[in-house]
Simulated assay, not measured.
Amino acid sequence: MRLASLQTITPETRLAQPLFDEKGLVLLAKGVPLSDALIKRLLGLGITSVFIEDRRTEDVVVEDVISPQTRQEALQLVYTTLQSVMSAGKHPRHFQQDVSGRSIRRLFDTILQEMRGKPDALLNLSSIYTNDGFLYHHSVNVSLISLAIGMEYGLTEKQLLDLGVGTLLHDIGKLRLPQEILNKPGKLTNEEYELVKQHSMIGYEMLRQQDDISSLSAHVALQHHERVDGTGYPRGLSGEEMHIFGKITAVADVYEALTANRVYRSGHLPHHALELLLGGCGGHFDGKIVELFLKAVAIYPTGLTVKLNTGETGVIVRQNPNHPQRPVVRVLKDAQGRNATPFEINLLEHLTVLITSCES
């Protein structure tokens, strides 16, 4: 299978992985042929690329660190939780019983068990979701990235559970902000930006009132926009004033947000987003956390369709551990865009060959 742009695939191409909506429900099932009408519908929903079946990459298995069923459950839980907050009025004292902190912790017991069962697997993030589903998919992805970093850091089981709960709900304060400001395509005014910055404190106050959510989990919402050089918000914390959870989530949140397609802009190329993280080491981000991020996350996910500086087009088929920018690519098209006899090139061994763009 491979990840391909909807703009480039031909009708009747079959889906290789199911698509989920913001509720965690199956939007389209694996194996469904994509008609012109379905392609147009997906594009209208803001979905720009999908995993497709392709005989030239039929041996490529895109396996995430958690099962599709567990990811679906996580999406359903975060959707139900955030919707319960929205329906509870302006100042909810407690979540509804069916979306308690206990149910979220049970989910993370499962997630951690699955992640520990694949200790050598890199986290493959190929974010496919509708415009309406950004907040929910973003929350799940940030949580998975944070847990992967936390496991590399050596956090205890309890710490990982607290981190998982906090990261899943880190943006809950955004539900109290005007959505037209959050989705504004242009630059925010100073007044709008100051309003958006309030979501960290609002989220913290919401989470700390829940009897079955720990104070450390609530602090994830509070600190995920703090920066180690003191330039973040809401408190301008720096260095050791930041909790390790805040440092981890800051990296995970920024990378996921940068690489995601939004209704008002396309996502950054993975290596551009990585350069921003590396450029922020010691300033915005803790260098140790970025180093652990590189060990845990596949910058170019397996199955991603990429173009090389040679003009050739191919698919990521394998990762080189500890070298996230230099995966193995199976070339499928030559520099003139013609189908070629597939061959593989290990970018770790051919240092002059670079990835210049990705289909998204």
Rank of each mutant, 00 (worst) to 15 (best):
M1L: 12
R2A: 02
L6D: 01
Q7E: 13
T8F: 11
I9S: 08
I9M: 08
Q17R: 14
G24N: 01
A29C: 13
V32S: 14
L34V: 14
S35P: 02
A37I: 14
R41Y: 02
L42A: 07
G46H: 10
I47E: 00
T48W: 11
F51Q: 05
D54G: 14
E58M: 12
D59Y: 11
I66Q: 01
I66P: 00
S67L: 15
Q69L: 05
E73V: 05
Q76R: 12
L77D: 07
L82F: 10
S87N: 15
S87A: 15
S87L: 06
K90F: 15
H91K: 15
H94R: 14
Q96Y: 11
Q96C: 03
Q96R: 11
G101C: 12
G101W: 04
G101Q: 11
R102D: 07
R102M: 12
T110Y: 07
R116T: 05
G117E: 13
L122V: 09
L123I: 01
L125T: 02
S127I: 05
N131S: 12
Y136P: 01
Y136H: 10
H138I: 06
L144C: 05
I145S: 07
I149N: 09
E152Q: 15
G154Q: 02
G164W: 04
L169N: 00
L169W: 04
H170D: 03
D171L: 12
P178C: 04
I181F: 10
P185Q: 02
E191M: 11
E192N: 03
L195M: 14
L195H: 00
Q198L: 08
Y204V: 05
E205D: 07
L207Y: 02
Q210A: 01
Q210G: 04
I213K: 11
S214N: 08
S215A: 04
A218R: 05
H219E: 14
Q223S: 15
R227S: 10
V228K: 02
G232I: 09
S238P: 04
M242C: 02
F245E: 03
G246M: 06
I248D: 01
I248K: 08
I248E: 03
D253S: 10
V254F: 12
L258K: 13
L258E: 03
A260W: 02
N261V: 06
Y264R: 09
R265L: 10
S266H: 15
E275F: 11
L276G: 09
L276P: 00
L277W: 06
L277C: 09
L278D: 14
L292M: 12
A298K: 00
Y300D: 06
T302K: 13
T302P: 12
L304F: 15
E312Y: 01
R318E: 13
N320C: 09
N320K: 03
N320T: 12
P321F: 09
R326C: 01
R330W: 04
V331W: 15
G337A: 09
G337N: 10
L347Q: 04
E349M: 10
H350R: 15
E359N: 07
S360H: 02
